[in-house]
Design a protein around this nucleic acid. Structure first.
Length: 277
DNA sequence: AACTCGGCCAACCGCGACAAG
DNA sequence: GCTTGTCGCGGTTGGCCGAGT
């Protein structure tokens, strides 16, 4: 894994850091002939490297339009915003940052931005407050509203409070399903060409990201309105759409399209409720 | 001065997508 | 439809370098 310490592999091709002479050969060849075939290029250019290595060296380092130096605040914000929508699609993010390579952005993300988000208490993959924090904050809600203990609990509360309890449970279950569908980072609903994200789908994701109520809002709303459904606060109707969009299989779509009361038991297994154990 | 540690980045690997035969 | 070759992407890591002890 990673860069081999060896200078050449079993095929006799050189590996490891590039020498200035090699760079010169590659640049000179590409300036004269272009790079229509990377696999054929090394031989034609007189390089003892594999085509893959040449392509990487050119695209990540030698290309004339590469911008060097620190990322600006604007670039940093662009990366954060795009990552929130696209996830680890570095090449797609790079298309929005002229002069920056996917590798450079990936490195910047892994060494700076990811740590920054973690320090701020955000999950770097979902850009939401850390899941464990969510669960610790809401655990007291769930202790009042144990989905699997619904019947028992219902028998212990006055009849007039039961509808509120049901509402809360339904909405918490929805939140759980959403969380389930969003983690790991949402698989993008791609069109046939994986490099061309469907703009409508992108807009839905962006809108959802912008409109998803924060945990604080959810909690405040719930406590102020007591038993009102948490998701009724959502100013956007996109939450339900997103659940449907994130459901990649027909079965998931079927589940998402129905109400929590219709969802199958396997959605409520222990893995869905880490805060209960 | 010598050593350790951690951050950073260039470059490698594996894999999936795609095209051609 | 299957196989093979090529390309591009994302994840990973070796090694350099500066800061700290």
């Amino acid at each position: 894994m990673g860069r081999s310490p060896l200078s050449a592999d079993e095929t006799g091709l050189k590996k490891g850091p590039w020498l200035p002479e090699e760079d010169d050969k590659l640049i000179s060849y590409i300036h004269k002939h272009g790079h229509s075939s990377w696999s054929a290029l090394p031989k034609l250019a007189g390089l003892n490297r594999c085509g893959k290595s040449c392509r990487l060296r050119w695209t990540n380092y030698l290309r004339p339009d590469i911008k060097r130096g620190k990322f600006s605040q604007e670039e940093e914000e662009t990366i954060l915003n795009l990552h929130a929508v696209l996830g680890n699609k570095w090449s797609m993010i790079a298309t929005h940052l002229p002069g920056r390579t996917d590798n450079e952005i990936k490195n910047f993300w892994n060494t700076h931005l990811k740590k920054k988000l973690i320090q701020m208490g955000f999950d770097p993959m979902t850009h939401r407050p850390r899941t464990d924090d969510i669960f610790s904050t809401l655990s007291h809600l769930m202790s009042l509203s144990n989905l699997r203990g619904l019947v028992d609990l219902q028998q212990q509360v006055p009849f007039e409070d039961q509808q509120g309890l049901l509402n809360l449970q339904a909405e918490m279950t929805k939140l759980q399903l959403l969380n389930y569908l969003l983690q790991p980072p949402p698989p993008l609903p791609m069109s046939s060409n994986s490099n061309n994200i469907n703009l409508n789908e992108l807009n839905i994701l962006q809108d959802f990201n912008n409109n998803l109520p924060s945990l604080k809002t959810l909690e405040e709303t719930h406590f102020s309105q007591n038993s009102s459904p948490i998701w009724s606060h959502d100013p956007s109707p996109l939450a339900n759409d997103l659940v449907l969009n994130q459901a990649s299989s027909s079965h998931e779509q079927e589940v998402a399209a129905t109400g929590p009361e219709d969802w199958p038991d396997h959605l409520f297994d222990d893995s869905m409720f880490p805060f209960q154990s």
